[in-house]
Amino acid sequence: MTLQDYHVTRSSNAARVAAILGAVALIILVAAPWWAGRADMRLMGELFLYLALASLWNLMAGYAGLVSVGQQAFVGFGGYMLFALTMFAGLHPIAAIVCAGVLGALVSIPVAVLIFRLRGAYFAIGTWVIAEVFRLGFAQISALGGGSGSSLPVAIVKSLASKRAMRESLSYWLALGAAVIVVTAVYLFLRSRKGLALTAIRDNELAAGSLGIDIWRTKFVVYVVTSALTAMIGALIFLQKLRISPDAAFSVNDWTAFVIFIVVIGGIGTIEGPIIGTLVFFALRETLADLGTIYLIVLGVVAIVMMLKAPKGIWGLIRRRYDLQLFPLGYRVIAPGKSDKS
């Protein structure tokens, strides 16, 4: 067996099979309005939005090392921007979602400048404080319903589509589209030059800095982009809910604790992790929802056990056992005669 018999590839059979299965699954999911019931579609739409939020948080915490517990600031901000821009500026809801993203990016810049002065646990607490400031701030705006919130006027809802079935399909497709766009964007970003720099920073911040990588700017870009996309997801979430209030919009439980749970369970620092984590989270939620508070206790216990027994999450376990990578980021050496076992 000579060295020439070996070959190196980025792709693997598993990645090719995953790509084909993913495409088939995507077609089936796009067609959901023709085969799924109304409740199932709502559930799946919510699942896709959580997947998008988790992928974004994973990029920020798992790759850029920015462990924020305040992303609800941007979920809520996006939601409120949807309401404000459609109600007062007369924008079409879709245009309002895009504008919410742009405004989210603008707002995240001063926030980043402020909280990037903090490190580690202080950074985490700082982001939470900022989110609370957002919540209290929006509760003061009486035009948006103050502390009790407001509902999206019927005329705006109808401007999306006049028939209810069409509206529900549209908001389902928007959620699916958001998840696909976010996961694809994260994957393409990590394969790019900037992604290479981000991986280098994660591996060894000191060495990355002395090789000319501007660590502050790389993290800043990641923070602003994830915040903008999080604001757009927030707008989508409240387009589905049709009602917003400060407590719902800036809920640390709904938009950060559950998202962190998803990423940690699935596997932080991997693209596959949030996908698996989202499925596990929804499976637990749908089977345990009747148990009330016990459901939250079970979630907590699962999270603690995972962190102790498998800190790399479910995907970390699978990858260690089978050397799998469904979104090929790295390269692998294939020995001759040996079938590509992954």
Binding site: R193, L196, A197, T199, A200, R202, D203, N204, L206, A207, A208, L211, G212, I213, G330, Y331
Partner: peptide, 18 residues
């Protein structure tokens, strides 16, 4: 101080970032 998750070529490319 190499970057363990990157390949040899990618490690070299990081040097060219400047």
């Amino acid at each position: 101080q190499l970057f363990p998750s990157l390949s040899v070529r990618e490690n070299l490319m990081i040097g060219a970032q400047v």
